[in-house]
Simulated assay, not measured.
Amino acid sequence: MEAYIDPVYAWVSALVGPHAVIPGWAWLAGLTMIFWGVLAPGFAAARAREAERERMLSRHPGLKYVAPDR
Rank of each mutant, 00 (worst) to 15 (best):
D69Y: 03
R59P: 00
R53C: 09
E54D: 15
G37F: 05
G42F: 06
V16A: 08
G17W: 05
G62M: 09
W25A: 07
A44V: 15
G30N: 05
A40R: 07
A10F: 01
V21Q: 07
R49G: 07
I34T: 04
P7R: 03
G17E: 01
H19Y: 11
V66D: 05
L15W: 10
P61G: 13
P7Y: 03
Y65N: 04
R47F: 13
Y9V: 15
L31P: 00
E2W: 12
R53D: 01
G24D: 03
L39Q: 13
K64C: 13
E50P: 05
E52V: 13
I34G: 05
L28A: 12
L63G: 00
V38M: 12
I34V: 15
Y4D: 08
L28D: 10
R53V: 14
W11I: 14
G24Q: 10
L31E: 07
Y65E: 03
A26N: 10
H60F: 14
L57D: 06
A46W: 02
H60N: 14
V66Q: 06
A46H: 12
R59L: 15
L63C: 06
V12C: 05
P68I: 02
H60T: 09
P23D: 10
V8I: 09
H60K: 09
L57R: 06
M33D: 03
P23R: 14
R49A: 12
P7I: 05
A20Y: 01
